[in-house]
Amino acid sequence: MSEPTGVIHDIGYRHYDGVRLGRRHATVALAVHSLRGIFGLGRTIRAKIIPFLIVGVMMLPAVVSIAVMALLRQKVMAYTSYGSIMQAVLAVFLAAQSPYIVAPDLRFRVLPLYLSRPVTLWDYVGAKLAAMITAMFLLLAVPLTVLYIGELVVDLPDPVKTGNYLAAMAGAAVSALLLSCIGVAIASFTPRRGLGVASVIAFYLLTSAVSTLVSATMESVNNYTASGWALMINPFFLVDAAVHVGLFGADASSPVVYPSGGGAVALQLLLVVVLIALSVIALVTRYRKAAAR
């Protein structure tokens, strides 16, 4: 006798005998899950507002520039200036989203569940960092690329600035790496999301205010070397000086002249590396403690 179709039977417990993938798969899945979450995908409408708004604002200069190029037939800005001009927006995104990827797992104690699976603590931390770095990179690289495509399409009389575009992309990668490490490290120290947001934004405001203030003071006493170095306190100008100007020979995006020459650039690059290393060490220390609980 054949069973009627379309009837639900209680089939009891079924064992799983399909594939079981390894640690790598789980780590990538965690990174993708976090990356989607940073942009509010798969989350509530409320969680989408801030990332969507920021992405929109980041696209604005690219769209306006393309319109100006098309209508007035002239370049508006260098690719390498995009990040520096939009630094406050990038900082707000970093502050708003880095606590999201680390704080809830600490606060609601989801971390032990991850650790009871094959992923290690370092896979977990790596996946979270990778997600934030990718998000920060996309946030800047997408408008840059849109602008570049715009320039190709509009076809201005002067040659296309491919070199400057590539320098800007390299800068976007380095600043994403640097800022994400710092942001996630700061955010990981509190399980409270609000406090995390405040701490990261405070970090940005502080570094940018101090660097501007010290730089202006030094300039007023005609100490231009010190004035240039003071600007390096701001991570956005540090990356601009080290990567755009130092490595690719682009024009500086700040009103003040950066310290230049082989020695200075090497020192700036070293500073970037040291800051990343310190952030990672802080993160590792933090999670060692969290895992031991």
């Binding site: 399909g18 079981r20 798969h25 789980a26 899950h33 094959p118």
Partner: peptide
Amino acid sequence: HMGQMSGLPRTS
């Protein structure tokens, strides 16, 4: 999500 963390492909 936790199933994926244990190594199951997303559909499984």
